[in-house]
Design a protein around this nucleic acid. Structure first.
Length: 468
RNA sequence: GGUCCUAUCGUCUAGAGGCCUAGGACGUGGCCCUCUCAAGGCCAAAACAUGGGUUCGAAUCCCAUUAGGAUCACCA
């Protein structure tokens, strides 16, 4: 039997970190077993579902590279199927009509809660023989005795007393189906073999198992993933910072860095931290999934991102940084220096945003000097040094890291100074600040023309400062 | 409150009864390297929730306690 998994988000917001991890594990398990991964949108709640959310989820999945084999299917387009099955259940006596008014139900629930009793529906319409001419919901007739047991692939055997499971509504009074019912029908009709989802669904599982049994279908295998928590160990939410997957794209996170991070949150393979997609697929198994919830750690994500930035070719990074530069008013599309520029930043950027910010000085029309840096390094005595550099760099036959280094060597040897004495003023002259990539690689990336111009500008700047 | 799940360094985790003086990674601190910042290298501090069993032997198995969390809708 081929493995078929599904990711079934409800379109009531963007794709968040928790959902992404669920999607990833479903995807990995399907790929691992040469199965199919299905995307299903659970939009039975028309009031809360939005078109934008659907798009946001699709965007998130695409960005992460979690391609689905079938779908997206929409539950809202399959209402007839659910109604047909609900009618069947009604006919067979597995379900019944409930005429209790929602407001009344709510009042009873609150009263029960207050009295410390379980806030379950009291089954009062179960044996009802009359059929008033009033709106009704359809409830599933849940067994009152016995227990429902299933073996969770991650958590192990879980046992529920049926008496604790209420007669849940499967069809609302407006005729629309509800979640626990749709899930069962869909998973059955779509041939889902493995349901991999958050462990907040554990309590739904016996309900779904019972419905599946009434429907006469073979239930899927379940695997419940532990939750992802925020730094305060509370469920991850906006309070903890970005929870939207796409927010990480905007922060300059590489999709594979997020994938790698998410994979290691709740799953492990010995001491290994870095996994290619192929390795993830090859090594994934429920056996190595943890049972306990984990705290989302942005620092570690950043470390992974930095790792993957270092691994990615400068040419590729150049393309990825372009939009970030664009957002800061720099159009570098035609700038052939870009790959070289990126190369100087690769080793020192945790995100694409950081890389973009670090690259800005290369493109400035005029260098803006940092006050402190200029005061410390752009001094009158550096003017002669700049003049010599301008002359020798101008005369040099090439403009490579090697030739630049040779020029610097000759200057410091002649003047009997340390490299730092020369490099820091030059750094400020070229970048405006005292922090930058290595001086030679940076100059090489900047290009001869710009370097000479900036050195001249800096010399002029010092002259002017001296006069005033 | 009922039900269910969970429990190893601050965080992610390794650990399948003796290989555990509990390993790795992020983060933190120190040192080295060095033209600045990083990167890199080396070193360090840092954990088996508690109490009972079982066993020759328990981080590992069982039970209880405690503490977290999830869930109890005509939401999904």
């Amino acid at each position: 039997m081929t493995v078929r998994t599904r990711f079934a988000p409800s379109p009531t917001g963007y794709l968040h970190i928790g959902g992404a991890r669920t999607a990833l594990f479903n995807w990995l398990f399907a790929r691992r077993n040469n199965g199919q991964f299905i995307l299903r949108i659970e939009d039975t709640d028309a009031a809360r579902s939005t078109e934008e959310s659907i798009q946001a989820i699709l965007d998130g999945m695409n960005w992460l590279g979690l391609a689905w084999d079938e779908g997206p299917f929409f539950q809202s387009k399959m209402f007839d199927v659910y109604r047909k099955h609900a009618a069947g259940l009604l006919e067979k006596g597995f379900a019944y009509r409930c005429f209790c008014a929602p407001a009344e139900l709510e009042a009873r629930r609150e009263a029960a809660l207050k009295a410390g009793r379980p806030p379950m529906y009291d089954n009062r319409c179960r044996e009802r023989k009359d059929a008033p001419d009033a709106p009704f919901a359809v409830r599933f007739k849940s067994p009152t005795t016995g227990s429902t047991i299933f073996k969770d692939e991650i958590k192990g055997v879980i046992n529920f007393d049926n008496s604790a499971i209420e007669d849940l509504v499967i069809l609302r009074s407006d005729g629309t189906p509800t979640y626990n019912f749709c899930v069962v029908v869909d998973d059955a009709t779509m041939g889902i073999t493995h349901v991999i989802r958050g462990d907040d669904h554990i309590n739904n599982t016996p309900k779904q198992l019972l419905i599946a049994k009434a429907l006469g279908c073979v239930p899927p295998v379940f695997a419940h993933l532990p939750m992802i928590l925020g730094s305060d160990k509370a469920r991850l939410s906006k309070r903890h910072g970005a929870t939207s997957v796409m927010a990480y794209k905007d922060m300059g996170i590489l999709p594979h860095a997020l994938v790698n991070y998410l994979a290691r949150l709740g799953w492990s393979h010995g001491d290994q931290e870095i996994f290619s997609l192929a390795e993830l697929i090859e090594k994934f198994s429920f056996e190595n999934c943890g049972k306990s919830s984990g705290v989302f750690n942005p620092e570690k994500l950043l470390w992974l991102n930095q790792h993957y930035i270092k691994e990615t070719k400068a040419e590729e990074l150049a393309g990825l940084v372009l939009p970030f530069l664009e957002a800061r008013g720099v159009n570098a599309t035609e700038d052939t220096r870009l790959p070289k520029i990126i190369k100087t930043l690769k080793e020192r950027s945790k995100t694409l945003v950081e890389m973009c910010d670090g690259a800005l000085f290369y493109f400035k029309e005029k260098v803006e000097y940092d006050g402190q840096a200029a005061a410390k390094f752009l001094l009158p005595e550096t003017i002669p040094l700049f003049k010599i550099l301008i002359e020798r760099l101008g005369e040099a036959s090439g403009f490579s890291e090697k030739t630049i280094a040779e020029v610097f060597d000759s200057v410091i040897a002649e003047k009997g100074i340390k490299l730092g004495k020369l490099a820091q003023p030059v750094r400020v002259a070229l970048t405006g600040g005292s922090i930058s990539p290595g001086i030679f690689e940076m100059m090489d990336a900047m290009g001869k023309e710009t370097v000479l111009k900036r050195l001249k500008d800096a010399a002029k700047f010092i002259e002017k400062k001296r006069e005033s």
